[in-house]
């Protein structure tokens, strides 16, 4: 007993600073959630501001554009998750087939570079290259006889533009996880498959994909928590009045309400609403993953 305590003590010492940080920065601030139920007046603080119960939530659900905003958020976020997943896995598989290590690493580095650019910069670039009159994209489409749509100014194209540009920016970075998973597949499985006469496609289908399935399930499970996160910085930079009906998301709405109009209670209420929905989704996906894929994340 005593010896095990002695053995574990260093680990306890190591874990405590981290736990403390989580406690201080993640759990204590949760007390601030109470302002979702208050008409929060900053100078009066959390304890003196008038208590208004669920009025903030009622106001939120009564907003004429609320349903539209939720729909936009979910559509954009889900499309980003699915497209991002497909692109990342596809890219990782393709890159894995490449033989030369130098070539492989160079491409990998080039592809994940955009991840480090901020949307503020990319936003300005996108406005220029997607311009129907003088952007390079419309010029290229013109060469093959296609009339370029107004990607950033047409409500039907705007969500598409958001998803594609986000996938372009992030798929290289997302692929890192899958590339790591691919390297952990036992090479003997491939050897066995080759002996059984499997070609490249068969190998991919029967060895590679099952090999990375747990990681895919893990990533899907984790990303379900983001179904209400459509990406504030990207949408905020690219949003314009013409595309409000398909582009306005929860976060941009909160920005206008919470920051511009200084309705902090309301903004917190929306944040709480989002968190509750996300928690439900995460728990649900966790249960589903363990039930159907027999895989437990934690």
């Amino acid at each position: 007993m005593k010896s095990s305590w002695r053995r574990e003590l260093p680990f306890h010492i190591m874990v405590w600073p981290g736990l403390l940080a989580v406690l201080i920065f993640s759990y204590v601030p949760m007390a601030g959630i109470v302002i979702a139920f208050e008409k929060f007046i900053p100078s009066k603080g959390i304890f003196q501001s008038p208590w208004i119960g669920f009025d903030n939530f009622r106001f939120l659900f009564e907003q004429p554009d609320f349903a539209q905003i939720i729909r936009n958020t979910v559509v954009i976020a889900v499309a980003k998750i699915v497209a991002g997943l497909v692109a990342s896995i596809g890219f990782a598989l393709l890159l894995n087939e490449l033989g030369k290590a130098f070539f492989k690493r160079t491409i990998q580095t080039l592809v994940y570079l955009p991840h480090f650019l901020s949307w503020i910069i990319l936003g300005g670039i996108l406005i220029d290259i997607l311009s129907p009159s003088e952007g390079i994209v419309s010029w290229a489409l013109g060469l093959i006889g296609i009339d370029a749509p107004f990607f950033l100014g047409s409500s039907s194209w705007f969500p598409f533009t958001l998803v594609v540009s986000d996938v372009w920016k992030e798929f290289g970075f997302g692929a890192i996880v899958y590339l790591a998973a691919l390297t952990s597949i036992d090479p003997t499985h491939y050897e066995a498959a080759v002996i059984d006469g499997a070609d490249r496609w068969r190998q991919t289908w029967h060895v590679t994909l099952p090999g990375i399935a747990p990681i895919v399930v893990l990533m899907v499970t984790l990303s379900l928590g983001n179904v209400l996160n459509a990406g504030f910085d990207q949408v905020f930079i690219l949003l314009s009045p013409t595309v409000m009906d398909t582009g306005d998301i929860i976060d941009t709405w909160v920005y206008r309400m919470g920051l511009v109009n200084a309705q902090y209670g309301l903004a917190t209420a929306v944040g709480l609403f989002k968190s509750v929905i996300s928690s439900i989704l995460i728990v649900a996906s966790f249960v589903l993953a363990s039930k159907f894929a027999n895989y437990r994340v934690f």
């Binding site: 106001f59 907003q63 004429p64 554009d65 100014g153 409500s155 314009s240 009045p241 013409t242 409000m244 009906d245 306005d248 206008r256 309400m257 511009v260 109009n261 309705q263």
Partner: peptide, 23 residues
């Protein structure tokens, strides 16, 4: 105004812009 100006401003800007571009 404190509660609803943001919503009304959005409605106004969005409607006017859509009318101008003919949507």
């Amino acid at each position: 105004q404190q509660m609803k100006q943001a919503t009304l401003d959005k409605l106004e800007l969005e409607t006017f812009t859509k009318i101008i571009v003919g949507e």
